[in-house]
Amino acid sequence: MVLTRNDDYFKGGLPYLDRVIFKVIPQPSTAVLALEQGEADYLWTIPGPDIRRLQANPNIVLARAPAGPGGSFCIDTLIFNLRRPPFDRLEVRQAFAHAINRQQLLEQVYFNQGRIATGPIASTMAWAYTPDVTRYDHSPERAPALLDGAGYRPGPDGKRLKVVFVHASTYARTAEVIRDNLARVGVEVELATLEFNAAVERVFVRADFHLGIASYCNGPDPEIGVTRMYLSTNIKPIPFSNGAGYVNPRIDELFARAATTVDEGARAAMYHEIQRILTREVPYWWLIETEGYRAFRKEVRDLRIWAGDLLERAWREGTR
């Protein structure tokens, strides 16, 4: 795709660049090579393994960007299907939260591109966020008691229960870590790796899953990206709705009030209460607040990584 300079742009003299070419390179490692060799100037996502090498490269600038590929303030989130066993039991959800090693995920799968999430609202959305919530640290030794409490005792082969984890192929690595984590507490996780659309359809439209995963993005305001996941009125066959099937009238009411409240302090208090309730009930399990790197050649100047007008003032050394 080629964008050409708009000579009638409303800010005089801008933009500087004549032409911008967008290219899709399917293999991430090939894309990195293209950047390193100067065939490309700017790279949207960086494969984790290459971050360190790019940091060491004097010709390339690496910048942290707040968003994942799908929007802003995104949290990769496990979806528990609350409508059927075993996740209708709180203890099972808590056991999963304790068993999953998010530090391992962050290091090995996300290559430290992000933070461990604490709840439904991203920590970077400072005004609405609160760290004062129920935390579930990685302590797999607590899982067996919780699973016993829910009636899932080990069978003769040591296995307590089996769940089907439906995920898009992009989450394959995350899923493999989770499968290993859970195997250690006697839970067999069967991976159903599907292409993106098929996974979305199976989780959100047909609700035919035990465990799902999606990147939920908070968006500029919790009202846009958070509310939709928890409202009982939003349990419908639509992608990225209330996929867990979570129903809590108190939560419905709090979200409704927050939506119509103008005062930011008052709204924040409502969102804080929402976060406290949700972390107690864990209808979802918030894994990682994702953050990406953008990389560009040092010849490219004045990119605005954080803003929507990335290229407005950009220019490139060595060309006009």
């Binding site: 293999q27 991430p28 490692s29 494969p47 984790g48 393994p49 290459d50 360190r52 090498r53 394959a172 690595r173 899923a175 493999e176 069967e190 991976l191 790796t193």
Partner: peptide, 20 residues
Amino acid sequence: RNLPSWGQILSSAQPFMRTA
């Protein structure tokens, strides 16, 4: 993905061709 397979390892090895 529920079975170990050579093609699978090769596929996940792609990003590491130059680092590992």
